[in-house]
Computed example of a mutant assay.
Amino acid sequence: MRYLFILLVSFITANSYSQDSTATQRPTKVKGTLVSASTSLPLSEANIVNINQVVGTATNDDGIFEIRAKVNDTLHLSYLGYKSIKVRVTNDWLKFGNTKIEMTELALALEEVTVKQLELTGYLEVDMNQVPITSNNRYRISGLPGQGYEAGKPNIATKVLGAIFNPADFLYNMFGRKPNEMHKLKKMKEDDEIRSQLSKRFDREMLLVLLQVSKFDLDEIVNQCNYSKDFINTANDLQILDAISECYEEYKVIKRSKERKTGKD
């Protein structure tokens, strides 16, 4: 009877430990409140992204947010005019609930911008020659009707094909070197909140954080995928995401084709 009691206690203890361990690993939600460090006022519509889970959300009018996360996940918090921060999810945060997080304002200095106005003569033929012309024809931008990417240049497949047969090419090296980060592209495209946030941003910060690449690498990826400087300089972050995603899909197709051809040889 004594041995049976000991066995029963051991079973309950082990089962309890297993449940606790599983609960720790199971994704749950964390809740927080973002406030200004200088005014203590809530920051509404701030962007919060779980880098590990690749999900996003935004704060409400009271600065409160809730997002899926588990222990040791990293949240990236950003708000216009404030310094972005990264916060690690802890057991205490999951256990005790809402946590107040302060964000610090940035000092923004605007550079003087000179706009050169067109000097119109009233003669259509003369005035038309003064209007800047861009040769970048465009097509399809996901989620933004009426706008699109450049066309009329060598297609992406041609550019990526060159990368595969030249291992020194930046594009091939980047995609081959960071496959895990590139796989996040699919998750980013599937998360409506992240897409919504990216469509309003032009600073590339969220893309850099999620893809774990430098600003130089990000620009080079888009450039090597045959998108123009005009597009790189004017596109919002969602457009850049879709551009990279399309290029990456082309890369994977051609890479598989090359591997099958090599296998047959």
Rank of each mutant, 00 (worst) to 15 (best):
L80S: 06
N60V: 09
D217W: 11
K29S: 07
G263F: 14
R177I: 03
V126F: 13
G32K: 12
G97K: 09
A109N: 11
Q239C: 00
N173G: 06
S36W: 02
N236R: 13
S199N: 07
A163E: 14
Q130Y: 07
T33S: 11
Q147P: 10
D237M: 09
L185R: 08
K252I: 15
A14N: 12
L106F: 00
K116G: 04
E259V: 06
Q53T: 13
P42Q: 03
K86F: 06
K178A: 02
A46F: 03
L41Y: 11
E181W: 13
I221N: 01
K83H: 07
N166E: 06
S38C: 02
L94C: 04
E181K: 13
N98L: 10
C225L: 05
H76C: 04
K261R: 12
S44L: 05
R140F: 14
L120D: 00
V87H: 08
F96M: 01
G56P: 00
L120Y: 01
E111I: 04
K200F: 05
Q130H: 05
I48Y: 13
S214C: 04
K178W: 04
T99H: 11
K184M: 06
S18Q: 15
G176F: 09
K70I: 07
A235I: 09
R177K: 13
T104V: 14
R140N: 15
N72M: 12
T99Q: 14
I51Q: 12
L4M: 10
I133D: 14
K70E: 04
T90A: 03
Y227H: 15
D217R: 08
G263V: 15
L77G: 02
K189C: 05
I101C: 03
L118Q: 01
V71H: 06
L211I: 03
L120A: 01
D265G: 13
E112R: 14
I221R: 01
F5T: 12
V71D: 03
G122Y: 02
N173A: 07
E250F: 14
Q117H: 06
D237N: 10
I141H: 11
Q239W: 00
K255N: 06
P154G: 00
A109R: 14
L211M: 09
L106H: 01
I194P: 13
Y3I: 10
T22A: 10
S199E: 03
K255G: 03
K29N: 04
P145M: 00
N155D: 14
K189N: 09
E150P: 15
S36G: 02
Q19C: 04
L210K: 05
N236A: 11
L207D: 03
P27M: 00
E119P: 00
G143I: 07
G63D: 02
K95G: 01
N166H: 15
G56H: 00
V87F: 08
Q224M: 02
E246P: 08
C247E: 07
T74Q: 09
A14S: 15
Y139F: 11
T74V: 10
I156G: 01
T114P: 09
I232R: 03
L211P: 05
G143W: 10
N223A: 07
L208T: 02
M206Q: 12
V30K: 07
S40L: 06
E112N: 11
F65I: 01
K264I: 09
L34Q: 12
N60D: 15
E193K: 13
F5S: 06
S214R: 05
L108M: 13
K70H: 05
K100Q: 13
N91Y: 07
L94Q: 09
T99L: 14
L8P: 08
M206E: 13
S18D: 15
V213D: 00
